[in-house]
Design a binder for these strands. Structure first.
Lengths: 173, 173
DNA sequence: TGATATCCTGACCGTTTAGGTAGGGATTAC
DNA sequence: GTAATCCCTACCTAAACGGTCAGGATATCA
C-alpha cells in the first residue's frame, strides 16, 4: 500500500508555494530547482492542482504560480485527491459514496460484504488524516519545525527529523 | 491511493477459512469456487499468508488450509501486511521505523521534512483501522451482518457500511 | 501399488500505471 | 522582438498487477 510520489512531489510544491506567499507568481522552475525535482514532470502535476482550483497561474514572463486560497483553508485531502485522482482503497468503491459493482458477495446476494466493512474503515482513517492536515500546518512545520497555534515550540531537533534509532513521536491525526 | 485486489482476495480467503473453522483442512479449490476467484492466483496469495504464519497447510489428498490461530487474534494489519508487503505510504519510509534516504529535504539538511509529518499521520490512520479490525469481526459480520460481542444486532447503522439501497441479508447456504 | 487430490514453486505473459522526456505552441513583460 | 513562462500533446521505459501454465512434492485411499 503506497501513495505514489506524485503526491509527495505535489505536496512539496504546495508547501513551497505556501512558503513564498506574498511574492507574487513563483516560476515553477524555481521550485523544481530548490526541490531537485524534474521541471517537466512538475508541470504535469501542477496542472492537476490548477484544475482543482488549488493554485492560480500567471502566464508569460514574470509569470508563475501562487496559491489560489489561504493555506489555512487548503487541506491535504484536496491536494492529494487532486493529484492521485480517486482516493478509494479498493476498486469496488466509488467516489459518490455509493457502491457499484465488483463486490461479488453482494452481487451474488449471499452475504454481507465483510471486506467492505474493512475498507470503509481504512478509507476513513486515511481521509481523516488528510482532512485534518492543512497546508498552513505543513508550511509552518517546514519553516519552524512545529505545529502552528500550538504550544510545543522549542524542540525542533527532536521530532520528525530525528533520524538515529528512535521512532519519532509524531502528533497523530 | 489504493490497495490492490491482492488484499481483497486474501482477506476474503481468510474470512472463508474463518467461516469454516472446525472443519479441518479446507481445500483452496473450494474457496476459489465459492468466491469465484481463480485458483492459481489464490495459490500465490495464500502462500504469503502461510509464510506469515496466518494459515496452516496440510498437503496431499484431503489436505487444505486452516487458520493457524483463533480468528479473534488475527488482525487485518497482519493479513494485509502479509499480502501487500510493505505497508508504508511513501517510499522514504521503511518498515523498521527508521527512515533511510529519499527525503530530499532532510538529506539536504535544509528543512524539516514536512511531508513526512503528513505521511506519518496517514499511515497512522491506516494502521489503526487495520489493527483494530480482527478477522473474527469480519467473519461475524459476513455471517450475521453485525459486529460480534456488541449489542447492535440486526442494525449496523453506526458503522460505515450502511448502504442506501442495501440488499436484504440472506443466510448463507 | 497406483490413482487421485492437494499443496507448492517457478516461469511466463499481457495490460496498466508511474515516472519521466520531448517538442512545440500560447501568452506576457520588457 | 525577444526572452521567460505557462501549457498541451505525445511518447517512452520500467515496474507492478492480475493471471496462467507446467510440473513437482506429498498425502490419502482403494
Amino acid at each position: 500500500m503506497m501513495f505514489s510520489t506524485r503526491s509527495e512531489y505535489g505536496v512539496r510544491v504546495m508547501i513551497a508555494l505556501g512558503r513564498r506567499r506574498d511574492e507574487g507568481p513563483v516560476p515553477l522552475g524555481d521550485i523544481a530547482d530548490s526541490e531537485s525535482l524534474p521541471l517537466p514532470y512538475l508541470e504535469h502535476l501542477i496542472a492537476r492542482l490548477r484544475e482543482a482550483g488549488l493554485v492560480r497561474s500567471t502566464r508569460g514572463a514574470r509569470g508563475g504560480y501562487e496559491l489560489e486560497r489561504p493555506a489555512t483553508t487548503i487541506t491535504m485531502a484536496e491536494v492529494v485527491s487532486a493529484l492521485e485522482g480517486t482516493m478509494v482503497p479498493m476498486q469496488c468503491f466509488t467516489d459518490s459514496g455509493e457502491m457499484r459493482v465488483l463486490c461479488n458477495h453482494e452481487i451474488d446476494g449471499f452475504d454481507h460484504c465483510a471486506t467492505r466493512l474493512l475498507w470503509t474503515r481504512v478509507q476513513g482513517g486515511v481521509t481523516r488524516a488528510l482532512e485534518q492536515t492543512t497546508l498552513a500546518e505543513l508550511v509552518e512545520f517546514a519553516e519552524h519545525g512545529g505545529p502552528p497555534k500550538r504550544q510545543q515550540k522549542g524542540r525542533t531537533k527532536s521530532t520528525a527529523t530525528a533520524i538515529p534509532g528512535g521512532r519519532p513521536a509524531m502528533p497523530a491525526a
